[in-house]
């Protein structure tokens, strides 16, 4: 037995029993087996229990540094025996923690969790970047469970989540009224018009080239919804120019078109002469 151990134990025992100077007190075997450290690292002379772990004790020497919340765990929450060296504990997270994700993420918990912060939402978002659906925009500020719905045993909850917009937003799509997406046959690929970072205003990037410039030229920023021009919802093949405040005065427009042969005050006539929305 380590001599230092014996001397220290004897001293502590004598002190605690108030028998210093008396006959040598009975000495116990090391309750920690082959683990030898200064008793005073964890025990006090006035009361052996509860153990009080002092700064001098460094668990990192065992190869497993107690970081974060682990530093507050009771020794015996992990160690089955006071003989610490008798049973070598595994250091993988799953050795002690229940995996409520049912192995879906594998054993590498540190991709999303740390010993300091078990609900590190920011870390989870970044880990999500390496998946098939990096989070952006509004998706960064919703709870995980909004998309990853609880699943019955036999169904995957996380790793097989569909990534198409309509997989989660079909109700939103069907609930639109301005314009009514379902009625006018709007494609389910929301990103054609919307962005995850800013759902409104919606865009129609091909509208300028295919139909009429609304995201460039004189009409850029002059409208707020599709229905400003496409007033006969959900029919997008018709449009109105003369209901807009800039074109809704027939007298003024008549004056602007003096001498223009065939001028008519209706929207189709406007478009026929101004297909790019420019004057002249």
């Amino acid at each position: 037995m380590n001599g230092r151990w014996i001397v220290l134990c004897a001293g502590l025992l004598a002190f605690s029993m108030g028998a210093a100077g008396a006959a040598p007190a009975p000495m116990a075997d090391n309750p920690h087996g082959s683990y030898v450290e200064e008793c005073s690292m964890c025990h006090r002379a006035d009361s052996w229990r509860p153990a009080v772990i002092t700064k001098a004790f460094d668990h990192a020497k065992t190869g497993f540094r107690l970081l974060g919340a682990h530093a507050t765990a009771a020794c015996r929450a992990c160690h089955v025996s006071l003989e610490f060296k008798a049973v070598k504990l595994k250091t993988e997270c799953v050795a002690c923690h229940q995996d409520i994700h049912r192995t879906e993420f594998g054993p590498d918990c540190s991709r999303c969790h740390t010993t300091r912060n078990f609900i590190d939402y920011a870390r989870m978002r970044r880990a999500h970047s390496l998946t098939r659906f990096p989070l952006s925009g509004t998706h960064m500020v919703i709870a995980c469970g909004d998309c990853h719905l609880p699943a019955a045993q036999g169904h995957l909850q996380y790793v097989n989540t569909p990534t198409q917009c309509a997989d989660c937003h079909l109700d939103d799509y069907q609930g639109t009224t301005n314009p009514d997406h379902e009625a006018n046959g709007t494609p389910l690929d929301c990103l054609q018009c919307h962005r995850a970072v800013s759902w409104q205003p919606a865009r129609f990037p091909n509208h300028d080239a295919q139909f009429f410039p609304i995201s460039s030229g004189r009409h850029k920023g002059k409208w707020s919804t599709c229905a400003d021009c496409h007033t006969n919802q959900p029919n997008y093949s018709t449009f109105e120019c003369i209901q807009c405040h800039a074109h809704d005065d027939p007298v003024q427009l008549q004056g602007n078109h003096n001498g223009v042969g065939g001028y008519q005050y209706n929207s189709q006539a406007c478009y026929n002469c101004h297909p790019r929305g420019e004057a002249g």
């Binding site: 015996r76 992990c78 089955v80 799953v94 002690c96 995996d99 192995t103 594998g106 918990c109």
Partner: peptide
């Protein structure tokens, strides 16, 4: 443990802690 990270209620796969 298992790779799924579950720990046992006892028996063969008992989590460290029996008798603690």
């Amino acid at each position: 443990t298992d790779a799924g990270g579950t720990s046992g209620t006892g028996g063969a796969m008992a989590r460290p802690g029996r008798g603690t």
